[in-house]
Nucleic acid binder design. Structure first.
Lengths: 254, 254
DNA sequence: GAGGTTGCTG
DNA sequence: CAGCAACCTC
């Protein structure tokens, strides 16, 4: 089974790139983040024409997640509320969608960025702690968590860990929140195959970051112990296309 | 001598199209309208690299005219004031630039559109009447008036004159104002060679107007009797490029 | 730097 | 439908 996660930074702007990429990659499931579109405005046709089913949790301008699945998914839900109950407006931003595929509970996330302002940073930490409770509640099932976590878990996940020590996406509290998830028994399949640094999933649009490989690994898979990864890799090629997303896809074979 | 007029609807957005077109057309002078950029922000390099001199009268966001000349121009001036004196703020909008090329006084215009609101319509008529005084004052010289006049002089200059009878760009007062110019002794060289309808220079971006050739001929040359046109034609080909201007160039050989 | 928004002009 | 501006987010 082949699953990918990709923050596309607007599905409407990236539509041709995503469908072209999907045609050349035989995915069972594609998890999208930052679709930036309401469900009514989502471009459904190009995906249904490729034989995919769509499950959407979008809003206009910001955030938005989607599941693009070859087979129909079951038990699809959005946000924390279906598992944890109402969380004081935390689901107002569309950042979580989940569905069951062949017994695997796939949870597709867009973690708040948390930059520019302590309010947003606190919101991110609160969101990550709520995610911890959410995952704990579903761990009886086989869980595949994936998406844009906006956290580089370790120094080897940043091109220049010294310069960016303590920077948002690399602070101790963020890494601890992610560590608390791992402590529930989740593993990072990418690091089971690729221990060295230099592999990233996001490069700032500014200052020629991609050309100089000044990236961050902030898009991840996390698997519960029921699941055994066969392969996990990043596809940086799409970052070279004209008008790319700032993120590239990560693929997982189960 | 080969002269062209082209409303490019933003020189920054159309820069590659304009320079590419200029490379394949051996113009002596290119008259641009709706450059939509201040003189400081105008992309000068691409034109100087092609061996052209630039004379600019721009502003940010709206309007803006430019002369792009193979040879240096002399006696360049902007607006009505240098000829008529201050006209009560009529030169605040950058719509007129003129220069002398081999004894020909070329006047490059962007006439107000005049749509959506009687105030704007009145402004357009006032502007056209002021232009009449301006032309009258310079008619001792050989005059080549050109640009976006935002007026279809006759019914044969509209794809559907019945449906658009009395529409802005085809009202009697606008046509009379243009007629008053002609009465000073100016002639339309395009109509000396091409009497039939179906030749347009502008198509609305909306409703597939170009595909259906639902256009208007609103970009013109007008020549004083000193000047004899060898040829005058429209080049609609650039309207088929991706992200085209809504106007196409008109060319005049003298 | 590159997405998105609203509001304006054409 | 396609420019612009100003503003927001990442």
């Amino acid at each position: 089974m082949l699953i990918a996660t990709w923050n596309v930074n607007s599905i409407r702007t990236r539509l041709d790139q995503v469908t072209t990429w999907l045609e050349s990659h035989p995915l069972d499931l594609l998890c999208l983040q930052e679709t930036k579109v309401s469900d009514e405005e989502f471009p459904r046709k190009p995906f249904s024409q490729l034989g995919y089913h769509l499950y959407l949790s979008g809003q206009k301008s910001y955030n938005g997640v989607a599941l693009v699945s070859r087979e129909p998914l079951t038990e699809v839900s959005c946000g924390f509320a279906p598992v944890l109950g109402e969380q004081g407006g935390l689901d107002d931003q569309k950042r979580l969608i989940t569905g069951l595929l062949r017994g695997v509970r796939v949870v597709n996330l867009y973690v708040p960025n948390g930059g520019s302002g302590s309010e947003k940073y606190e919101y991110k930490l609160h969101w990550l702690h709520t995610l911890g409770k959410y995952v704990k509640s579903i761990l009886a099932e086989a869980v595949c968590l994936c998406g844009d976590f906006n956290v580089a878990p370790e120094d080897r996940d940043i091109h220049d860990p010294v310069a960016y020590a303590g920077h948002v996406m690399a602070t101790v509290p963020e890494r601890q929140a992610l560590g608390a998830l791992m402590a529930l028994g989740l593993k990072d399949p990418f690091r089971e195959f690729t221990p060295e640094s230099g592999h990233y999933t996001w490069w700032d649009y500014r200052a020629g970051s991609f050309r100089r490989n000044r990236g961050w690994r902030i898009d991840h898979f996390y698997l519960s112990s029921h699941l055994v990864p066969k392969q996990c890799w990043i596809d940086p090629s799409v970052r070279e296309l004209p008008r790319p997303s700032d993120h590239v896809p990560v693929l997982l074979e189960l």
